[in-house]
Design a protein around this nucleic acid. Structure first.
Lengths: 175, 175
DNA sequence: CTATTGTGGATAAAAAATATCCATGAATAG
DNA sequence: CTATTCATGGATATTTTTTATCCACAATAG
């Protein structure tokens, strides 16, 4: 039972994006640099987050990624499922009916109790992940982490975030 | 996040071994046949259960496996950890310190909050697995499953289990 | 002794995770 | 408009993990 490295990367990136101002963005390359990750592979994971509507992406010279909704409404479960897929970790292969004894298919309509027990545990896991919001993660970091790391993170965000053109505010200049 | 197929095989085998009488055993080959599994690979998993002292093994012509302790004191967590290993599914790569910013190692003595949140969820998962005993699994099977499958399982165990030589008891009545 | 069974190591085959590259299209700064 | 920047998606390569097989060995019932 193992989670891919992409999960760690995705959560860290999302937490960093929670720190950008307003609708500013940060490029995938910047985040890859911040965490010493392979840029082209990280983009794959960021793309999964975009597909899951956890992030929004903006193409173009000043483009990048930003959170698709407030950090209060993004949970670790959202991110884990987006990156690892929604299928349960335990996959019942129905080996109970693979034996030499030929038994009618109607004998197996009731679900396998082993599968049920494993899935129940997995629901507990997911429930715990659903309790942890991205804003919790960020708040804990701000409060508990070493002040130097907090300062370094904020400085990085400040330096690398990119403001977006205002387009829908009070003056609809765009038409 | 995925669990290997060995987990399903191991739990089914343990549940079947819970049905053998006294100190009788059942061979790995018999269990592989019962579930349509590759014998040589299944032995690897059974061996992991033996190493973890969940099963006992008996070599020799009448040998095989049996539970090392009552089914009431074997949990799904025991089996999952024995087969999948005891390491957590989320492995923190400390990518927070892999960036270009050179910061003293003393800045990272406090554990990563993301890691803490992921491990907390994993504790909930393991706690749920620890609640499910092998005797629960067997009892649910006996009560809820289709009577034909119960009968078939019991018949298989009855036919393939192997009594052991009595060596220390008082009444060698079986003979 | 002989046949059967688990143990452990070595090894091979298959599948998945990780990583890179490139062509494409979209957006926009200038 | 033009050139640049960036995300997207496909193709592909590399590495690791999982799955599976085989064999020499030790133990033991008959």
């Amino acid at each position: 039972m193992k989670l891919g490295e992409g999960v760690e990367a995705a959560i860290h990136c999302a937490a960093m994006l929670a720190g950008v101002d307003g609708n500013s963005t940060m490029s995938g390359a910047a985040m890859a640099e911040a965490f010493g990750l392979s840029p082209s592979y990280l983009l794959k994971h960021l793309n999964q987050l975009t597909t899951a509507r956890i992030l929004e992406s903006v193409p173009g010279p000043a483009g990048g990624y930003r959170l698709a909704r407030p950090a209060e409404r993004i949970t670790l479960l959202d991110i884990v499922l987006a990156v690892e897929g929604r299928e349960p970790a335990f996959r019942c292969g129905e080996i109970r009916q693979r034996g030499p004894v030929k038994l009618d298919a109607s004998a197996y309509v009731k679900p396998c109790g082993i599968n049920a027990a494993m899935l129940k545990a997995e629901r507990a896991y997911r429930a715990a992940l659903a309790e942890a919001t991205l804003s919790d993660i960020v708040a804990d970091f701000m409060n508990d982490a070493d002040p130097r790391t907090v300062a370094a993170s904020c400085a990085f965000v400040e330096r690398r975030q990119r403001p977006q053109k205002v387009q829908s505010s009070s003056q609809p200049s765009k038409a």
